[in-house]
Design a protein around this nucleic acid. Structure first.
Length: 768
DNA sequence: ATGAGTATC
């Protein structure tokens, strides 16, 4: 938590104080919060003095202002301020207007802030930068660089700041417009449910329906009843603005005002196929080549679903396009094919902004750039110069199956809204064309209007814990924009209860309260919190950090054998969790050297991220006085780590069935195999897994061998044998249980142990 | 006998 900015004198004092040496009236003289009218704002915008910094407006400011005046939203200013002063609580908008809100809300005079949320970190950062320039805010004098961050923070205005994970670029008392990720605001709400530091909250890109935005909409709706002074603005780019408008109606028949700002794009002509295409990749390649041969100059953007598909298509298109050029050099120009997906290093991603290749001769056909992308190019990255879009109509989407508690990725048809968004990418610089590889009839009748909101497609264990921490008593009755399946909520509650984060009545326990403070899945938070009792919190901290970042193993297609050999050298036979620990420790021993990582086929960006996450988690541990301890003897240490893993992941155990590599998950009875990336050199009888992945077949990934008696000892409630389905697993556990009962008196038995853990946590909470 | 669409704390 940053310092509370409101203990300082409100900056308004400065406006009327002696610091304004000239006799000119203050630019905001006569402005009263929320009664401000457009002509007043217009005058302030045109004025010589920046009303927020009291510095003279710069030349650059006036230049930007002239450009802004041409935007549609500028001409609607009158309408905007009229409406804002007429209504009470809720506004819905279809474009970006946070600056205008500041002129009427005047948050700095009340010691408050206007918050504007974004689904993505990069957007929060870059929009803050742009708006800081538009408002002529003061800049910090230098670029702040953090060694292990992927994105380099931009110099930003003090009045306009941003807050994202790992970076709070705001200045208490000065910043009054704060851009932030939606997840960040949700975190803040956990410690300040009334969000008292904000006078207006703007949720941008609400149509994307991220998990955090959906939860925030529910919270803000009920918060509006408690805080009459709070203004809420929802910004949405698509049709479902009406859905939000209805959702936020405080009383029946009364709807929040809607304010539309037309976007500024060029027309895009849409074409459909006559017949459905049986093979969308083949059809996509054919269409791209057809465009290249027959259409006017202009770059092409093709949407495919994943890395492998994209790399494959890239090669094929390049080969065929080169062929075409060699056959007919007078009419077909050269191409470059650029793949684009999130796991590419930033330098590779930058290539999408390269210029298209030059024509082979001055008067010959010009070159063409072809970008082949996942749906990262649909929302997160915009490429100017695209004139042609090829849309096969598919993307990989997360689906959650609460019955077997598995999240997986499925190639699925996109929604109409998505298809429109994709088509729009062709019209950013001039009129364009979009080729849809499905029939118009299918578009009309088969595609859903909107992509299913994330809340309907996710495991909600984390979210439910956050909601309970926020004081939501009845999760089923919570006012969701779209309510998740009851079974999904039940699964989440069940997990949290077994982890002792919630008691049997669904109330938050002391342990649960601390778990919620960690930006981790509940299983990982639990094992981290109990790990000092196993004298390995230093190691569990590392493992949790490593599990929180993208895959650290690099396996280039042409160097697989070398990469696998390098991995072998780092593997610990007892399990992949220990291997991750080992990798991190070697990375540290080698002074976080990128070269070392590269030579050992490790992703240095992921390792740097793990470092960052580890430091953040360590700070949270210190806040709750969770000791960071270790064990000297390596054998004892590894044993302790495996026991601590069981305390968090006892619901993710598999038992070997038969002779082969076949495992059965405990209780859910799913037949699974060890993932080929698994580093165990044997197939032990009992294993704990981090992840269940469903690809061609069901796999368990990141696996460590455990002893069954630990299950009975550390998770006695879950392993209450009478509740078990009959079968080989139950028989095996029963025989362990009977053996265990004959142990000499004095060995720690399960129930006693868990009670010890909760008292320990209770004591920590009181001290914290 | 082989895999991660996109985000977030």
């Amino acid at each position: 938590m940053s310092d509370n900015p409101y203990t300082r004198a409100p900056p308004l004092a400065r406006f009327n104080g002696p610091s304004t040496s000239n006799k000119a009236p203050h630019p905001l003289m006569g402005f009263l919060s929320r009664t401000v009218k457009a002509p007043q704002v217009q005058k302030a915008l045109e004025g010589d003095t920046n009303p927020f910094t009291l510095q003279p407006h710069t030349k650059q400011y006036h230049k930007i202002l002239e450009a802004r005046k041409k935007l549609p939203v500028y001409s609607q200013m009158t309408e905007f301020y009229e409406m804002k002063s007429l209504s009470d609580a809720l506004f819905l908008f279809l474009n970006r207007i946070p600056q205008f809100v500041c002129y009427t809300d005047l948050p700095h005079t009340k010691g408050k802030l206007v918050a504007c949320t974004q689904p993505r970190r990069v957007a929060a950062m870059s929009v803050a930068k742009r708006v800081a320039d538009e408002m002529d805010g003061e800049h910090y004098p230098r670029v702040i660089r953090m060694p292990s961050l992927i994105v380099i923070p931009v110099p930003l205005g003090k009045q306009v700041g941003y807050s994202i994970r790992f970076e709070d670029m705001t200045e208490p008392g000065t910043t009054f417009l704060k851009y932030m990720t939606d997840g960040m605001l949700l975190r803040e709400a956990m410690n300040d449910p009334d969000l008292n530091r904000y006078s207006t909250i703007i949720l941008d890109e609400a149509h994307e329906r991220t998990l955090a935005t959906d939860i925030l909409m529910g919270l803000l709706k009920s918060l509006a009843k408690r805080r009459s002074d709070l203004k809420i603005i929802i910004m949405s780019a698509t049709l479902d603005a009406h859905k939000f408008q209805k959702y936020f109606a405080l009383q029946k028949g009364e709807t929040a005002p809607l304010f539309k700002v037309p976007g500024r794009t060029h027309p895009v002509e849409v074409f459909y196929t006559q017949e459905p295409e049986p093979d969308y990749v083949e059809a996509a390649i054919r269409t791209v080549l057809m465009i290249h041969r027959a259409e006017d100059p202009g770059d092409i953007l093709l949407f495919l679903t994943g890395e492998e598909e994209i790399e494959d298509a890239c090669r094929k298109i390049k080969l065929e396009a080169d062929d075409l050029m060699n056959q007919d050099p007078d009419s077909v120009g050269p191409v470059i094919c650029i793949p684009l997906y999130s796991s590419l290093p930033p330098a590779q991603q930058q290539r999408i902004f390269d210029d298209p290749p030059k024509g082979r001769s001055p008067d010959g056909p010009p070159g063409r750039k072809i970008v082949i992308s996942t749906n990262i190019a649909e929302t997160s990255l915009t490429i100017d110069g695209i004139v042609y879009v090829v849309d096969p109509g598919f993307s990989k989407q997360k689906v959650y199956n609460p019955r077997i508690r598995v999240e997986s990725l499925l190639v699925s048809p996109i929604s109409k809204a998505s298809a429109q968004q994709r088509a729009g990418r062709a019209g950013r610089t001039r009129p364009g064309k979009c080729f849809r590889l499905y029939t118009e009839k299918d578009f009309m009748s088969e595609l859903e209007e909107q992509t299913h909101p994330e809340i309907l497609r996710s495991n909600l264990a984390n979210t439910v814990l956050e909601l309970v921490k926020l004081g939501i008593k009845d999760l089923v009755k919570f006012d969701y924009v779209d309510a998740p399946a009851p079974e999904t909520l039940m699964r989440a509650l069940e997990l949290l209860n077994y982890l002792a984060a919630l008691d049997d009545d669904g109330n938050l326990t002391a342990l649960g309260g601390i778990m919620a403070e960690f930006p981790l899945d509940p299983q990982m938070a639990k094992m981290l919190i109990v790990s000092p009792e196993f004298r390995c919190s230093n190691e569990i901290l590392t493992i949790v950090a490593m599990l929180s970042v993208p895959n650290v193993w690099v396996r280039p297609p042409n160097m697989r054998r070398e990469a696998d050999q390098a991995k072998k050298l780092l593997e610990v036979p007892d399990g992949d969790h220990l291997t991750l620990l080992n990798v991190y420790n070697h990375y540290s021993l080698n002074m976080h050297d990128k070269k070392w990582a590269y030579n050992n086929y490790l992703n240095s960006r992921a390792l740097a991220q793990a470092d960052n996450v580890r430091a953040q988690l360590q700070r949270t541990m210190e806040r709750f006085e969770i000791d960071i301890v270790s064990t000297q003897d390596e054998r004892a240490l590894y044993l302790n780590v495996r026991k601590a893993l069981v305390c968090g992941f006892f619901m993710q155990i598999a038992h070997k069935e038969g002779e082969k590599n076949a495992y059965l998950t405990v209780k859910d009875n799913q037949v699974v195999s060890l993932h080929p990336s698994c580093g165990l050199d044997t197939t032990p009888e009992w294993v704990l897994f981090n992840e269940f992945v469903l690809t061609n077949r069901p796999f368990i990934r990141t696996v460590t061998t455990i002893k069954p008696e630990w299950l009975l000892e550390y998770a006695p409630l879950y392993f209450e044998l009478s509740s078990f389905p009959k079968g080989e697993t139950r028989r095996a556990l029963e025989s362990i249980f009977n053996k265990g009962n004959r142990l000499p008196v004095g060995s720690t038995k399960g129930k006693k142990r868990s009670r010890e853990q909760s008292t320990e946590v209770e004591a920590k909470r009181k001290r914290a």
